[in-house]
Amino acid sequence: MTSTGEYYQRDRMRHPPPRDEGYKTSVTRSPNYPLISLENSVSDVTGPVFGHGDVDPLDRDLLRNYARPGESPIGERIIVHGRVLDENARPVPGTLVEIWQANAGGRYRHKKDTYLAPIDPNFGGCGRTLTDVDGYYYFRTVKPGAYPWRNGINDWRPAHIHVSVFGRAWVQRLITQMYFEGDPLIATCPIVNTVRDKAAIGQLIAPLDRQASVPLDSLAYRFDIVLRGRRSTLFENRLEGN
């Protein structure tokens, strides 16, 4: 059964509000006026389509996609895997998932990152893949390190991986961050705490997945991503025969 209706309205109480004084940069970058709510049109329920010509299988392997031949990055080897689902619990197949992260020392390979920790010559820090028919994806990488950032003078980001996902429609576009089970820095992070709903924060914390670990090689963390779902009733501006 496929859904052909409008997408469910975004539950903005589960998302961070635009302005959060604890996250200082948001104060001057947040709209003051309320958003104008639109009913979906064709412009919104369509969105970019990606295929196997867009990504290389190596792109999902951060242990190898920037390493010199025969070498690998420093750090705890991990697998990050999960499914992209919609709010109806249906898999979202063939969608592009892109990630980026700091290296094991908490340093990003970026012109603008000046943290003391060293760049790892064998680690780029980004990856991308398409979900399979079951909405499943995986990456191999190293566990990123925590890092300090200028907000409060002693604020630290918990270890995290940034995740970007498209879904099938422009309305589903989402960027988020994945955290690691058991990290004591999660509770005090101003960016984590832009999300007010504790249960919603829980959705960002990937549990250690012993079953999916590779013995003598890598631990695994499970991160399922839920995108907006849509009604199953026919969407009235869809033309017959499409």
Partner: peptide, 25 residues
């Protein structure tokens, strides 16, 4: 029903993931 994964800021280093050439590599 499931609930949508909450958003988090793309942060200052978004280029690494989505435009690595601009990040410098």
């Amino acid at each position: 029903y499931l609930k949508e994964t909450p958003s988090q800021t793309a942060g200052p280093y978004v280029h690494i993931g989505l435009a690595p050439g601009a990040a410098g590599f």
